[in-house]
Design a protein around this nucleic acid. Structure first.
Length: 111
DNA sequence: GATGTGACTGACC
DNA sequence: TGGTCAGCCACAT
């Protein structure tokens, strides 16, 4: 990963590595990429990731586990649907046991 | 080339 | 304990 193709590509690579049934935060990805203070950019990248088929943007939520970006999907309920299908329980647009489901690239990829 | 905006986060009051 | 403010960087206009 970490293609020099661009910031977005790096983001996509990380997001693609998120295992099913797990979720991560924009900040975690940003930090992994070295742009911790630019978590917004990750969100921005996700917006563009919308065009890509293999980028599970629904597994990316904000730091408290809220589906902040669900509104950007074709159907807002789609994000929750996909997550629940993968075993992630959602309530009030928020991931239940977010701490348990949380997938930290820095930790999981052991770098 | 300057200005505005955003799927966030951490710090401060 | 909870709401508000500012920073941050890439992309579009």
């Amino acid at each position: 990963m970490k293609n020099d193709s661009g910031f977005f590509e790096m983001v996509y690579d990380v997001v693609r590595l998120i295992p099913s049934g797990r979720v991560t935060s924009y900040g975690a990805i940003a930090r992994y990429l070295g742009t911790a203070k630019s978590a917004r950019m990750v969100g921005w990248a996700m917006n563009a990731a919308h065009a890509l088929p293999d980028v599970p943007a629904h597994r990316v939520v904000n730091r408290v586990g809220v589906l902040s970006g669900k509104n950007h999907f074709a159907h807002p309920s789609r994000m929750q649907e996909l997550l629940e299908k993968e075993g992630v329980q959602i309530q009030e647009d928020q991931v239940i046991n977010f701490r348990e489901k949380f997938w930290d690239p820095e930790k999981e990829l052991s770098l």
